[in-house]
């Protein structure tokens, strides 16, 4: 199983690790089968995501994908984030290649983004 250079770099140097106290919203995805948990915190001002942080208990691609998702989110509107940050868009930013067994990591990150957006809208 091979990870791309980009994915490994993201894993070794993740961005936006941590929590946002008094976050505008949080998106939490739990994968019971594999025992993984992904949390994305967002700060929203005037419909724009001004800050995003993540915490992930998961494998190498899960950490890389959630880190990349937070990078992609900052500066976008909530709608733009929910629409454009898809699993394949994340994988593309991470070298464009992820094995079949690990695409779930990118899918999980996509879901976490959408969950954060949805939870903001619910308020």
């Amino acid at each position: 199983m091979e990870y791309t250079e980009e994915l490994l770099n993201e894993f070794y140097n993740p961005a936006n690790v941590g929590v946002i106290k008094a976050a505008s919203a949080v998106g939490k995805i739990v994968d019971d089968e594999n025992g993984e948990i992904m949390k994305i915190y967002i700060s929203v001002e005037k419909n724009k995501i001004v800050d995003a942080k993540f915490q992930t208990y998961g494998c190498v691609p899960s950490i890389a994908c959630s880190s990349m998702a937070t990078k992609m989110m900052i500066g976008l509107t909530l709608e733009e984030a929910a629409a454009s940050i898809t699993a394949s868009a994340i994988v593309k930013e991470l070298g464009g290649k992820l094995s079949d067994t690990k695409t779930r990591s990118a899918e999980m990150a996509e879901k976490a983004v959408k969950a954060a957006v949805k939870n903001y809208s619910k308020k």
């Binding site: 894993f11 070794y12 494998c59 190498v60």
Partner: peptide
């Protein structure tokens, strides 16, 4: 506890 195995493995690989 709290540290996923593959992530630890890849840190050690480095």
């Amino acid at each position: 506890e709290g540290a996923e195995g593959e992530a630890v493995l890849m840190m050690l690989d480095r």
